[in-house]
Design a protein around this nucleic acid. Structure first.
Lengths: 198, 198
DNA sequence: GGGCTACCATGACGGACGTCATGAAGGAGG
DNA sequence: CCTCCTTCATGACGTCCGTCATGGTAGCCC
């Protein structure tokens, strides 16, 4: 549980970015939040802020990917629609529990830096890929034909990210519930019945 | 076509926000981009940056709403799926024509200020509502039962916003095409056949 | 023990930010 | 002509940013 200062800084950067955005998150904020020594910044991240944010983005992508696998294992009698509902429920729970301060760090990074830093933009692209892959893999496992698993994963990620933005703007989890309800028949209808697992 | 300096400043603010985010967009940038006198800032926007961004957000919401009505009128033999395709095509065309520098200003504002400025967050919420309303109205006009028009509009906005983020991260319009293709049967299947217009 | 490396501390620099104070043009109405 | 008010112009203030320079400490290896 006790993490190295370096890890704490990356993790704190991700948390601050998802609340304030990249621009408003200062390096001094990060070290303060991580309770790390300020001098360590130039030691662990000689590439400066870009490197720190890039690692935070990569960590966020990994975290989202791991969370997909974890939540998929917990669903009983799983279907694609239930998988999406479980993914959205994680955000719903967090909003309900902790308020709407934090969004998705990947969205925040794209919004702030897509036009100004190619390195960060690419980092976010890879993070999205790393998140999308386990979603598509899980869909196939649930009986979705391989040709449709990736497009449906893209749809799921898009709808989820958009609903998160709407939920934060309205301070209301309703958009999350709405996309889950509306997308469920489409997702569950995509399973190839012959390959369905019990 | 010739706009007042005040209008130009609001418009420039919206454009810069959608490219750089709120934090990275300075007031001096705005007046420079609008070719407006710097002294006018404190005259027209005594509320400071928040007022300027709030007006830019409101303008962006209005613009999106107007664009929905405009594009809906141009579709021949319109269906909900075609409406969504047309909305996505506007973004697709812009990305293809002008590159991926600019995203949706509403998303950028939420990502940057949702946790720090309640006024701006509410402004974005209203802007989303003003955008969602004509979408839902158009859906009803196309035969979607009133009970489903709003949820489907929320789904369309969510999927579109999310796909825009993915497209920018990957510098590829594919996510936009994907959500259009995958959502089309769901959207077109929602029309009440008895009320369908020729 | 001497030296090398990893890690941490602190202060300074140059620049950009939002905001404010002050004041100048320039037409409208008396 | 003189005054009022809208509009614009310019410079300054204080703050925070990312980065860098410099130096200190702790532990390992020869």
């Amino acid at each position: 549980m006790t993490r190295t200062p370096r890890e704490r800084m990356v993790l704190s950067a991700a948390q601050l970015v998802r609340i304030q955005g990249v621009g408003a998150t200062g390096m001094r904020d990060v070290v303060a939040h991580a309770e790390a020594p300020r001098g360590s910044l130039q030691h662990y991240f000689p590439g400066g802020k870009d490197q720190l944010i890039a690692e935070a983005v990569a960590w966020a992508g990994d975290y989202a990917a791991r969370r997909v696998a974890r939540v998929a294992a917990k669903i009983e009698d799983p279907t694609p629609g239930k998988l999406f509902a479980a993914m959205a429920a994680q955000w719903r729970d967090e909003f309900t529990r902790d308020g709407f301060d934090g969004g998705c760090p990947l969205v925040a990074t794209v919004a702030d830096t897509a036009a100004t830093s190619d390195g960060l933009r690419e980092a976010v692209g890879k993070a999205f890929d790393g998140w999308q892959r386990p979603v598509a893999a899980t869909l196939e496992q649930l009986g979705v034909p391989p040709a449709r698993s990736t497009p449906l994963a893209v749809l799921m990620l898009s709808a989820l990210e958009g609903a998160i933005v709407l939920a934060r703007a309205h301070q209301d989890v309703a958009p999350l519930d709405t996309v889950v309800t509306e997308l469920r028949p489409l997702l569950d209808g995509a399973v190839d019945k012959r390959r369905r697992r019990a």
